[in-house]
């Protein structure tokens, strides 16, 4: 029961306290306007280049943008403890680490999911694209798995942020890597040969592909393999993140660097 309380209530409190982007002055330009303008930019690049259709770019960029809260919010809700001078208190508490840190991931996943879905709906509206409304429940499910996977990589980054203070730069670099390697704007088979294998190891790649297939009318059975792979990749990053948190926690205790900012 205590773990459940830490997971749900503790996670939500940490998210609200440390992810200051929930302020509307930040939330609207970054989380709401950001995906729309990125979708428009690449949809027009696609039109100019005569590549793909609007739907292709709407889905790719909307999902890519789920990585923004996925990475930045996870980084802030873990690394932010250090700046708030509360990291020591968190780490000396007897609370189990999995609910402690995974609880912070749940609001992040929901925010990432909301960002991507908002991007898809706005993109469809702005560009008059054709994604059947009937496919939206399955699109929502696949996007949720993608948001989970980005929260996984965010957990790894949150751990790194315990020892490396420039989380904003790191978050942007990973976001850009995802933009180029995951098939956001170019299908994996059209990327240079050395890029596609890297993309297949990253979060979002399989979710983007599956979402495009669902939007084109594919049924669950046709995308379940891709969704399962995305889930597995997300789980691997979560495990990596939790292991990194444990290791870096021990290291920061050994070297007395816990509160160094």
């Amino acid at each position: 029961m205590t773990s459940l309380r830490i997971f749900f209530i503790g996670g939500l409190m940490s998210f609200r306290a440390l992810f200051n982007w929930m302020n509307p002055w930040i939330f609207v330009p970054t989380i709401l306007l950001g995906p729309i303008t990125q979708i428009l930019l690449f949809a027009y690049v696609g039109r100019a280049a005569g590549v793909g259709d609007d739907e292709f770019f709407i889905i790719g960029n909307a999902l890519n943008y789920a990585a923004i809260p996925g990475m930045f919010a996870m980084t802030f809700t873990i690394g932010g403890e250090r700046f708030a001078q509360t990291l020591g208190l968190v780490l000396v508490s007897p609370a189990r680490r999995i609910p402690l840190f995974m609880g912070r991931a749940l609001p992040v996943i929901l925010t990432g999911w909301g960002t991507a879905m908002f991007g898809i709906v706005s993109g469809v509206w702005a560009l008059d694209a054709d994604i059947p409304w009937g496919s939206f429940p399955l699109v929502g499910l696949v996007v949720a798995v993608g948001a989970f996977a980005t929260a996984g990589i965010g957990l790894v980054m949150g751990a790194i942020n315990l020892v490396w203070r420039d989380g904003a730069t790191l978050g942007n670099v990973v976001f850009l890597v995802l933009l180029v390697f995951t098939g956001t704007n170019v299908a994996l088979e059209d990327l240079p040969g050395w890029m596609a294998p890297i993309g297949r190891c990253l979060p979002l790649t399989h979710a983007i592909e599956a979402t495009r297939m669902v939007a084109d009318g594919a049924a669950w059975g046709q995308v379940s393999g891709l969704v399962g792979t995305e889930m597995l990749i997300g789980a691997v990053y979560v495990v990596l993140g939790l292991a990194a948190l444990r290791w870096l926690e021990q290291m920061s205790r050994t070297h007395a660097t816990l509160d160094r900012v």
């Binding site: 690449f42 005569g50 590549v51 793909g52 956001t184 704007n185 170019v186 990327l191």
Partner: peptide, 10 residues
């Protein structure tokens, strides 16, 4: 790079 990758397809 992302924009040029799109242009590169054709």
């Amino acid at each position: 790079t992302a924009a040029l990758l799109v242009y590169r397809v054709n």
